[in-house]
Design a protein around this nucleic acid. Sequence first.
DNA 1: ATTGATACAGAATTTAATACGGTCATTATT
DNA 2: AATAATGACCGTATTAAATTCTGTATCAAT
Lengths: 179, 179
Amino acid sequence: MDEETDGIPQNRPAARDIDATDRKILGVLVDDATISYAELGERVGLSPPAAHERVKRLRRSGAIRNTAAIIDPKAVRKPLLAFVHIDTKGWGKTPELMAISEHPEVEEIHSVAGDTCMLIKVRTEDTRALEGLLSRLYETPGVTSTRSYVVLSTYLERPVQPGITTEWPTPRHMAKPLY
Amino acid sequence: MDEETDGIPQNRPAARDIDATDRKILGVLVDDATISYAELGERVGLSPPAAHERVKRLRRSGAIRNTAAIIDPKAVRKPLLAFVHIDTKGWGKTPELMAISEHPEVEEIHSVAGDTCMLIKVRTEDTRALEGLLSRLYETPGVTSTRSYVVLSTYLERPVQPGITTEWPTPRHMAKPLY
DNA sequence: ATTGATACAGAATTTAATACGGTCATTATT
DNA sequence: AATAATGACCGTATTAAATTCTGTATCAAT
């Protein structure tokens, strides 16, 4: 029940840096966010209220965007995953992006270096639904061509793991490029 | 606190089909899994214990894989996202996949139709870390070539949404392909 | 040294999760 | 067709956790 002065996220006073304890907390909560604060505190070496405080701060600062149920795509009968390239020649960005994100099958939209295209990830029930989506995409203003890659099997899908590259003992300023 | 006879998920007695209420529940929990069962029940038209029962079943059946905190990659200083194609000529699958998933920067591994390659999604702190990962990947047994696409900007990243294609009024057997 | 701010722990309180009957409707079984 | 068995639900009771409150130690800045 974090109360904001209104619904829009404010510019916060420069959220303090994430420390090692915060990373531990994130690591635990990425794995399982249903545990109690007592359990969380025990795992990271804090009292329940202290752990609670940390989590609240991580939420406020935006480090924890959301706490969500991860759904098995098969359970909702959307086992077909595909990546689609969309040609983006002469785009004004926002309106076209909005139009694309209207399609609920679209899970991700990325701009890719090295080509004037977007890479979008879509999930549908079967190939016919993918076909339908592609034709709807093609009718979307700004989309001049699409090229889709169906995924045969997915072997790994995991959330962002905190504290991997950042756990390095060498701070950034010590990693001097040689070139 | 679901107790299993042991840690390994059992073959369950053919988990009953997901109905409209289940999809509503999934839809709510994908959006925010921190709400109380009272709140959840109110939104889907159930008493708190009934909502609780449903959620427990969805967990047991695997429809809800887990409940996780969604982390902002920038907060853990891994703003660089890339997709990497890996040549998979002459693979025995499992050992090579295991070797690749060892790298913690790897978030997804997909097999793609139309080419003998894997598409993997990786996230690192910067280009140097990506370079390091790529060279480590190249040293991984089974990887003979890599081709990476750096993502300039990401405009949308959202979890699997239940009940979109499945909300269709036409059941599957009525959608007869013409070909 | 003194003030102010922050992070924390422990206890108290409020709120939610969970367990427990009991009812109704639906589905199998005899 | 009658009856048992099951499953889904609600209302209530109990247990457990979230949240609030208060005091203390630590650190930074004045």
